[in-house]
């Protein structure tokens, strides 16, 4: 099963490689990983998407917690949470297809953020499944490139991941 693990980690060089190294050394898979500093510059927040049985996820969280640089973590699966991913898709356009792409993007609440005579860049955020659905809805041959941030997430309500 897919799990989104949110990690507060010391904002130090090498911290990311400790996390990545742990996954490769122990044979866990990482589907995606995003990391950026937080409002507290000494901390980074990492969002990691992984898959595995309950036992494996338990080991993953324990092993992550064991890393000295990891300050705190939660498995968002244990919370009601919101998941968002950012995607930008560059699509080849012709006079005939422009209108169709625009309306499709609108249905998915995407925005067109760059236009050239032969291309659009569509920006879209949402749960990963929604982004997958958009990709499936457009003609694959017209896609020039796709860039996705990987999911990030946050729990609902007052509780949250902080010090």
């Amino acid at each position: 099963m897919k799990h989104i693990i949110s990690i507060l980690i010391e904002n130090e060089s090498g911290a990311l490689s400790r996390v990545a190294g742990l996954f490769s050394a122990r044979g866990y898979n990482i589907e995606s990983l995003t990391v950026a500093p937080t409002e507290d510059p000494s901390l980074s927040r990492m969002t990691l998407v992984t898959r595995g049985s309950e036992d494996i996820i338990e080991q993953i969280t324990k092993q992550l917690n064991k890393l000295i640089d990891v300050v705190k973590l939660i498995d968002l699966e244990d919370f009601i949470h919101i998941e968002r991913e950012l995607m930008m898709v560059k699509i080849r356009t012709t006079d005939k297809t422009r209108e169709e792409i625009r309306s499709l993007a609108a249905i998915f609440r995407g925005r067109i953020i760059d236009v050239t005579p032969t291309s659009y860049v569509v920006e879209m955020t949402g749960p990963s499944s929604k982004l997958d659905a958009f990709i499936a809805a457009i003609d694959g041959d017209t896609i020039i490139e796709v860039v996705r941030s990987g999911p990030t997430g946050i729990s609902r309500g007052e509780q949250g991941l902080h010090l």
Partner: peptide, 11 residues
């Protein structure tokens, strides 16, 4: 003392 040693191979 190490939670990761617990239920690692044997539940």
């Amino acid at each position: 003392v190490d939670p990761a040693s617990i239920s690692k191979t044997v539940k």
